[in-house]
Amino acid sequence: MTSLITSLSIISHLATIVVGTYVAYQSYRGYRRNDSRPMLTLALGLVLMIPIASIIDLVLLDLRILTALQSELVIQTVSISGLIVIFYGLIQT
């Protein structure tokens, strides 16, 4: 049962990484197409919030370098950094 839950967790993380990367890529394409700097900051913020945070979570979960609380703190810091970048892009217009 534990291996099933672990496998589902890894599959969920991988799906999040793929979908998040695709959404960020579409934002980057919007930046390239319209030469819109807010779209670039949106893409960067999305990359930080979704795939990078998920990769860090997956690595920290697998390696168990940090405690659960420390791992969550690192992941939340990366996600909040992504939100700050997105907010900067929104107020930049």
Rank of each mutant, 00 (worst) to 15 (best):
P51E: 00
H13M: 06
R32E: 05
I84N: 04
V85F: 01
L83V: 13
Q26V: 07
A15P: 02
A24I: 04
Q76E: 07
F87E: 03
L60A: 12
S54D: 02
L73S: 12
L4I: 11
S27R: 11
Q92W: 07
I84C: 15
Y88P: 05
Q70V: 04
I55Q: 02
S81P: 06
S9R: 07
I10C: 05
Y31E: 13
L58A: 13
I52N: 00
Q70Y: 04
L60P: 06
L69K: 10
V59W: 08
R64E: 14
Q26C: 11
I17Y: 09
L48Q: 02
Q92Y: 12
I5A: 10
A24P: 01
I65R: 04
N34L: 08
T41P: 05
Y25S: 11
Q76T: 06
V19E: 00
G89C: 07
Y22Q: 07
T6F: 09
T93N: 12
S3W: 06
A15D: 04
S36L: 13
D57F: 02
Y88M: 13
V18G: 10
R33Y: 14
V23N: 04
I11L: 15
Y88G: 08
R32G: 06
T21Q: 04
A68I: 13
V78H: 01
I65C: 02
S36K: 03
V18Q: 13
D35C: 08
I50W: 08
Y31M: 11
I17F: 06
I17H: 09
D62K: 11
L44D: 01
S71C: 00
Y25M: 08
G20P: 11
L40D: 08
T21F: 15
S54H: 08
I84P: 02
F87T: 14
S3C: 05
G45Q: 08
S36Q: 12
D57C: 08
I80Y: 01
Q92E: 12
G89W: 13
V59Q: 04
V18N: 05
Y22G: 11
S12K: 11
L73Y: 09
Q92S: 07
M1K: 07
T93Q: 10
T21K: 03
L58N: 05
I11W: 11
L46G: 15
T77W: 09
S12A: 15
L44N: 03
L48H: 00
T2H: 10
V74F: 05
T21V: 00
R64P: 01
V18L: 15
F87K: 02
I91E: 11
S27Q: 15
V23Q: 00
L48I: 04
T21A: 05
Q70H: 02
D35Q: 12
E72F: 07
L8N: 10
V78A: 02
L8T: 06
R37Y: 12
V78F: 04
T2L: 13
V59M: 10
A43D: 04
S27C: 14
N34M: 09
F87G: 13
H13G: 10
Y22P: 03
D57S: 13
I91Q: 00
L44G: 11
M1E: 06
V47D: 00
A24D: 00
E72A: 15
V19R: 04
S81H: 03
L90I: 15
S3L: 12
T2P: 04
N34G: 05
M1P: 09
I52K: 01
I55R: 08
E72T: 15
G20H: 06
S71F: 03
L66G: 06
V19M: 10
S81M: 09
S9V: 01
